[in-house]
Simulated assay, not measured.
Amino acid sequence: MIQLLVIAKAPVPGRVKTRLCPPCTPRTAAVIAAAALADTLAVAGAVPAVRRVLVLDGDHPAPPGWVCVPQRGNDLGRRLAYAFADTALPGVPSLLIGMDTPQVTPALLAAAGHALGTNRAVIGPADDGGWWALGLTDPADAAVLPEVTMSTAVTGRDTRAALHGRGAGPLPLTRLRDVDVAADALAVAAACPPGSRFARAVARHLTGAPEGVR
């Protein structure tokens, strides 16, 4: 059994998904971000876990039964490292995901959790060169993350190399596309299951389609 961590930013206009603007406005970008977070939390809530934690920058309600832990650190690498350290449960592996892959499924998360049963670390590569998921059996291995430059085309490669340096070479998971710009949002929305809040928000606010689409 694993612990699931969702690291997220409160969907406040002007603070989230700013690379969607234009064509979005800060308000509609925040609506899309809120939908992505809602879908992600719903999927994570459907996966068996010892504990589910929302590691949050800002103020946003966590689902019932979730623990909410504030982010800390001056940059993303440190925030990720502290997310693992501040939520560590002895003997329980942690799987961390973000809010930018709302197309993720319970089956993908369950497979990642299963892989953590026999591997010290797992990583889910993203199409842009980063990663969408990182699982660690030892939270101390997250100490390498502040050394990795985040949000670049080689972040995934450098994260894998840093973990290899600790003897924690990660097993790769399924590759996913995360949402950075409008083209990503459209592609990810098309990959979401029926009923997706994210797909509906994109259809309404990014493509101009009627609200009833999907």
Results as ranks from 00 to 15, higher is better:
M1R: 14
V6Q: 13
I7A: 07
A8M: 03
K9S: 08
P11R: 03
G14D: 13
V16M: 02
V16W: 00
K17H: 15
R19E: 15
L20H: 03
L20I: 11
P22N: 08
P22I: 05
P23G: 06
T25Q: 09
P26A: 02
R27T: 15
A29P: 00
A30L: 06
A30Q: 04
A30W: 02
A33E: 12
A36M: 02
A36V: 01
D39N: 00
D39F: 00
L41C: 11
L41F: 09
A42M: 10
G45A: 04
A49G: 06
V50Y: 12
R52C: 01
R52T: 05
V53A: 10
D57H: 15
G58Q: 05
G58R: 09
G58H: 09
D59S: 14
D59C: 13
A62E: 04
P63F: 03
G65Q: 05
W66E: 02
W66H: 11
V67I: 12
R72S: 12
R72M: 14
N74W: 15
D75N: 11
R78I: 07
L80R: 14
L80H: 09
Y82D: 08
A83I: 02
F84K: 10
F84Q: 07
A85G: 15
T87E: 06
A88P: 13
L89Q: 08
L89F: 10
P90Q: 04
G91I: 13
G91N: 08
G91E: 09
L95F: 09
L96I: 01
L96W: 00
L96Y: 00
I97L: 11
Q103P: 13
V104F: 14
T105P: 02
T105S: 10
A107G: 03
H114S: 15
A115Y: 08
G117E: 08
A121M: 06
W132N: 00
W132R: 07
L136P: 00
T137M: 11
D138W: 06
A140W: 05
D141Y: 00
A142W: 01
L145A: 01
L145Q: 00
V148R: 07
S151K: 15
V154H: 14
V154Q: 14
R157C: 07
R157A: 09
D158Q: 14
T159Q: 04
R160M: 15
A161K: 10
A161N: 12
A162E: 03
A162L: 06
G165S: 03
R166K: 06
A168V: 02
P170W: 00
L171F: 10
L173Y: 04
L176E: 05
L176T: 08
D178H: 12
A182E: 07
A183G: 13
A183K: 07
D184Q: 07
A185D: 11
L186W: 15
L186R: 13
L186H: 15
A187P: 09
A189D: 08
A191G: 06
P194N: 13
F198C: 07
A199D: 12
A201I: 03
L206I: 02
A209V: 10
A209Y: 13
P210W: 09
G212H: 09
V213G: 10
